[in-house]
Design a protein around this nucleic acid. Structure first.
Length: 98
DNA sequence: CAACACAAAGTAG
DNA sequence: CTACTTTGTGTTG
């Protein structure tokens, strides 16, 4: 997580991206958060799509646990990482979040 | 500077 | 349960 913060400080990002990536990195293991919660955490309660937009291009793909971010109803949603949503669900199961 | 795209959520039927 | 509309930010032209 500390590694993510260092990268956020180094990387050229907008304030929104920093907050979103940081908030995502702060999600406790074995727990999931909705895009809505992430958006609310960065004071953009209606920017849940923007959060996904940032995650999609995620410059820290393996550094930020974006797989812990799920839809409001608990669905996995999409995942641009390796294995896609399938791997995402698998990771959540291993962490005890699902 | 303007238009397009998105990993969602909300509301309606 | 399924379908359509809405919304904010990033990226690309």
């Amino acid at each position: 997580m500390r590694d993510a913060r260092r990268l956020l400080n180094e990387y050229k990002l907008t304030d929104f991206q920093r907050q979103v990536l940081l908030a995502t990195a702060k999600i406790p293991k074995g727990e999931t958060r909705t895009y809505k919660q992430i958006a609310a955490a960065v004071h953009r309660p209606n920017a849940y799509r923007a959060v996904g937009s940032v995650m999609r291009m995620n410059p820290f793909a393996p550094t930020i646990p974006c797989h812990r971010v799920v839809k409001s109803d608990g669905s996995i949603g999409h995942y641009s990482g390796r294995g896609g949503s399938k791997a995402k669900e698998n990771m959540l199961r291993r962490e005890g979040a699902l």
